[in-house]
Design a protein around this nucleic acid. Sequence first.
DNA 1: GTCTATAAAAGGATAGAC
DNA 2: GTCTATCCTTTTATAGAC
Lengths: 217, 217
Amino acid sequence: MINQVPGDTRRRIVEAAMHLFWEKGYGSTSVADILGRAGINSGSLYHFFPGKQDVLLAVLEAYRTGIDENLLEPNWRGIDDPIDRIFRLLAGYRAALVQTECTYGCPIGSLALEIHEPDPPVRQLLAANFTNWANAIEDCLKAAGTRLPAGTDRRALAEFVLTTMEGGVMLAGSHRDVAYFDRAVQQLREYFNCLLQSARSPVRRKSQRRNRGKSNA
Amino acid sequence: MINQVPGDTRRRIVEAAMHLFWEKGYGSTSVADILGRAGINSGSLYHFFPGKQDVLLAVLEAYRTGIDENLLEPNWRGIDDPIDRIFRLLAGYRAALVQTECTYGCPIGSLALEIHEPDPPVRQLLAANFTNWANAIEDCLKAAGTRLPAGTDRRALAEFVLTTMEGGVMLAGSHRDVAYFDRAVQQLREYFNCLLQSARSPVRRKSQRRNRGKSNA
DNA sequence: GTCTATAAAAGGATAGAC
DNA sequence: GTCTATCCTTTTATAGAC
């Protein structure tokens, strides 16, 4: 092909696959689909990748390393308040749902539930993506400092934000109605309000002093 | 085949497909897989179903109509407290995760994120399954009566229980670690504690007097 | 209703020229 | 590195006997 930037082909393959996996899923995307979208031929793809699954690994790796540049920075630009940042990120997912008429799915979440093989390398990269996402939220929660009650399990809360997002996207997509996502986020907001409130005027409970952060009903 | 109960073949097909879709996903299950597990031949399946997708519809329909008998009753037998029932149901999913070494996925959730086609009939059945699940939780929340604060959006809260379950199962499966599910449920528990607490001693915003009444605060 | 056999297509992957 | 051509397997679905 003419005017080909060296090293560009591999990038185009990953980009094409990233889009197609998001749009159709991994199993329903054929190698031929990827070739077509990338504008290349079979030989080129198999020159860079041993097989289709290795393309998936490259895609997941691209998501993982690009989370700051492609997801967090665009959403957080100009927003400093850490709690605002959390709900701004969720609003970003909402915008994606609206733009795609609720066809959008979190690419990581969709792949996580589509891939059923034990498949350690793929699964580890999926997990790493989730971990990075939760890390970013956890940083926000740490930055919130004393606005959250002492003893708040910030790691668990960060993961809870993630499960809310994934669950909300799942329901909104299935019902083709963004209101399902909105209600999930609204419930999370209520929970945060409760936490922020009780940090201001702590409710004393028997279990709380003895067992900080681990109360279980 | 000998000793065949009339009308049994169709049921066996659906049962085999139900198991395989749950285990391997829809796309990775071939018609041949279903035939093998059901112990029948190609002609029988295509006698009852126009194609593979119609088997999926029958599976989703079976989940939908069987939710009480197969999911709710086994988990709720002997438990009357409506809030306990909610967390008992979540404990049931936890048990499934543990038994399968976190291979388990909610079959509806997995299919919801695997199926990317617009595909109205399939999607409507997925949505109907989610709706039935949330209905059951909503009934619990209604039964909780005044233990929840006045004005609680019980529908949204029921859906929030669902998103927590789905998100928790997703993370636990991806990390192959049930602790991710446990933390999600624990966060939901904290939220419920907050709600139950504020129903006992309603929080007044702005000029709130602390620890009114006789609660053990 | 169930069987066997097979059609027809699509899938992932490879070979070898350039 | 990229191309064209092709192999081989798997897949869904059908045909027609019993």
